[in-house]
């Protein structure tokens, strides 16, 4: 099957991805070199491939790449500051020990960023709802909840 070009704004920069109709956004991004989106199940069950697509969370294995034509994609790398500094959510994850193997982390971080956009001062329940689509097998989630609360406080301070 011949490939066709699609244009997306990837972490703020316009890029062209070469894809087949069957290419999922996950595979297209990985082929392009953005490997923070992970292949955990490729069936929408694990959340390791989560991205922000036009500001909305999506599991990129459930999006065909052609559907992203002309849209904005943000991955975990895209949260870094101009000098590579971590986003407050990423920083809070590091400080609270909310990372173990790290395979769920990029997706989990994006889900937390999205959650904090919607609920700047979230309850435990809101955190659980917002992160319910992202599996983590290592941490038991407890430290992740701590990290999201901490990130909320850090973001509040920054505002």
């Amino acid at each position: 099957m011949p490939k066709q070009p699609i244009n997306v704004v990837l972490n703020g920069k316009p890029v062209t991805l070469e894809v087949e109709p069957r290419t999922t956004l996950l595979r297209a991004l990985r082929e392009f070199g953005v490997t923070s989106v992970k292949r955990g199940c490729e069936e929408g069950e694990c959340g390791t491939c989560t991205v922000l697509l036009d500001g909305k969370l999506q599991k990129s294995c459930m999006v065909l790449a052609v559907e992203a034509e002309g849209r904005k994609v943000v991955t975990s790398e895209g949260l870094l500051g101009p000098d590579g500094e971590l986003h407050p959510v990423q920083k809070a994850f590091v400080e609270e020990g909310a990372i173990q193997c790290g395979f769920c982390t990029p997706g989990m971080v994006l889900a937390a960023v999205d959650l904090l956009n919607r609920h700047p001062d979230p309850t435990d329940e809101q955190i659980k709802e917002g992160l319910s689509g992202n599996l983590c097998r290592c941490t038991g989630y407890v430290s992740i909840i701590r990290a999201v609360h901490k990130a909320a406080a850090m973001l509040k301070e920054r505002r």
Binding site: T35, L86, V94, T105, P106
Partner: peptide, 14 residues
């Protein structure tokens, strides 16, 4: 953990 949070750490598939 910094690389893991940033998503830049490369696993085998990467």
């Amino acid at each position: 953990d910094v690389e893991k949070a940033a998503g830049t750490l490369q696993y085998t598939d990467d």
